[in-house]
Simulated assay, not measured.
Amino acid sequence: MSLTLNALAELTGRASEHLLAEEVEESGLDREAVLSAMRERLAVMRESITRGLQSDAPSVAGMVGWNAKTLWDAPDPLNAPLLKRVQAYAMAVNEENARMGRIVAAPTAGSAGTVPGALIGVADHLGLEDEDLVMPLVLAAGVGKIISRTIYIAGASGGCQAEIGSSAAMAAAAVTELLGGGPEACAHAAALALQNTLGLVCDPVGGFVEVPCVMRNGFYAVHAVSAAQQALAGIRSVIPPDEVILAMASIGRLLPLELKETGEGGLADTPTGRKLAARALGEDEEADPEG
């Protein structure tokens, strides 16, 4: 029987070990093959962070491409290196995606920066090795898999809550395990992250995965770390984790089509959003955005 977050919360040991065992059984792969695949994905994540922090080349639509480097190179007036690192890492990955660079969909391309931003950002802040991240990454993948059994992980199906919400839940669980949390804390970290994205719409300007997607990954990588911190302190979701997933699925069905990745509502439907879309698509730049 497939694990749920509620069931995971009742187990002992490392949450990732239970999900790894499930993956081995379901996929037919051996343990080392799964771990090797995770190491490869981790390497791609880190490479995309490195490239993204070094580049200010514009994206395909020209709306982003310089934000991660700008933040990374800027002074830190808050003297909060973890906050800055997590945001910059996440944005770097998504700007690489917007430039058509190689990234790991986690769980989607539009939400690809949240998991590496939070997990690798925290690890680098603490001076941990990449090998320490392999099992937490297994856990992140397992959480994404659990959510996907209830709702399609796509903005077109459930709004951005289904993409960035899922990635935040995955990242929160992974960071929690990285910092020593057990299965109950990991499951509730995922639930805390997910419940605080409920109702988030998918409104990309021009239909491009650029605005608000790049900065949104930066925000929700921090969100995931906050959820992990709360769970590690003993805070638990009042609503059971599995019910939070069901709530997201219900809300996703209620969202209008205009707010599910069509580029026809929200920020995409603002005067400036329409003007930027027309410019990116090579249409008349002087067209009246109110027209």
Score class of each variant (00 low, 15 high):
I146Y: 05
E131G: 07
R31T: 14
M248I: 03
E131T: 06
M135E: 13
M170G: 04
G113E: 02
G252Y: 01
F208W: 07
S16F: 04
A74H: 05
A168R: 06
M170N: 08
G207Q: 14
S226P: 03
G218H: 03
V60I: 15
E285L: 01
V134F: 15
A61Q: 05
L255I: 01
V238D: 01
T176A: 09
N196H: 09
E95F: 05
A80H: 11
R253E: 13
L128T: 03
C186F: 00
A154N: 10
R274W: 08
G165L: 02
P77I: 10
A173R: 03
L137N: 02
D30F: 05
T114L: 08
S27V: 11
H18A: 11
T108C: 12
R279H: 15
V64Y: 01
A112N: 02
G110P: 02
P204K: 15
P58K: 11
V24H: 10
R236Y: 04
A68H: 03
G265A: 03
H188V: 06
G159Y: 07
A231L: 08
A118I: 05
G263T: 04
E95K: 13
I120C: 00
Q195K: 09
G165Y: 02
E177T: 01
K145R: 15
S226Q: 09
I103T: 08
M100D: 00
P212V: 12
S166Y: 04
A7R: 15
M215I: 15
Y152K: 10
A249R: 14
L29I: 00
P204Q: 04
